[in-house]
Each structure stands twice: as C-alpha cells, then as structure tokens.
C-alpha cells in the first residue's frame, strides 16, 4: 500500500496514485451517460475543423476520473464537500485499442481545525498537466 488513509492524514501526505486508460469507446459511453454529445469528443472531422489535434476526452470525464482518486481514498463519496478543476489542456484520444493514459496523483495540502482537509489533485497526459487547480475539500473521519 502506498499513501495514507483519511483517518491519519497530515499536510504533505499522498493519496494512492492511479492511472486510467481512456479509449474512444469510453468517450462514447460517457457522452451517452452524461448527455454530452459534442462531436469533438467522437468525430475526427469536427475536431479537425475546430482546430483540435484530434478527438479529445470530455474535460468532465477527466475531472470525474480524477475525482475517483479522492472518493476511493475517502470510501464515502459523501465526505467530498467541494470539488473543482480548470481544463487547461486536452486529453487527445487516438483511434486505437490502447487509448490515452491519464495519470493521477493527489496530496493533502492542508488539514483544517474544522475537521476538513484540502486535497490537491494532479492529472497528467503525456507528462503534462491537463487539469489546473484541481482541488477537493473533504471531511475527515472523526
């Protein structure tokens, strides 16, 4: 086991890292589940026309996957009080079986007197951050 459980956190401690592969099939499945049918997430031609380097993952899918890092660690997703992120770089998803690899890590930035903590999440694709200011405020177990 790497990382620390939510009961014994201190500023600086790390959450167990995760890496997730995202394929075109995942994008189609997410589009249907989230009702987000913007063609830049499934149609090469549209992505091309608007100047993207290829079909890209929904920013909200990357944010959801990054959220799993925090809720898996918490156990109870209801202990997540706030969660936000900026979408600073696209995850380009190739038309193959392997897809794009998104790597996730998290760190406790601050443990607060009121029993909450701030977790900073990092999501990278091809070595570069794709989410900016990805921050979760969580309630720690009493």
């Amino acid at each position: 086991m790497s990382g620390t459980g939510p009961a014994e956190v201190a500023a600086g401690s790390a959450l167990p890292p995760m890496s997730v592969r995202v394929t075109r099939a995942d994008l189609v499945r997410y589009a249907g589940a989230a009702l987000d049918f913007n063609p830049i997430h499934w149609n090469e031609k549209t992505a091309d026309e608007v100047g993207l380097p290829g079909v890209i993952a929904h920013g909200m899918l990357t944010m959801a996957i990054a959220g799993r890092l925090v809720t898996d660690w918490l156990g109870d997703p209801g202990a997540l009080l706030e969660y936000g992120a900026r979408f600073i770089r696209p995850v380009v998803v190739p038309n193959d079986e392997t897809g794009a690899l998104v790597e996730l890590s998290g760190k406790i930035r601050e443990v607060r007197e009121d029993g909450t903590a701030r977790v900073d999440v990092t999501a990278t694709f091809e070595g570069k951050a794709v989410l900016g200011k990805a921050v979760a405020i969580v309630r720690l177990p009493a």
Binding site: M60, M63, F87
Partner: peptide, 16 residues
Amino acid sequence: YGRMVHGDMSFAYQRP
C-alpha cells in the same frame, strides 16, 4: 456553441 469550450467547473455539495 461551436466556439464554446468549458474553462472550469466546480461543485459545492450540501449532500450527494
């Protein structure tokens, strides 16, 4: 809509 992108998103929960 064709030129629109999502810049950021955040949620503050009262409960799930």
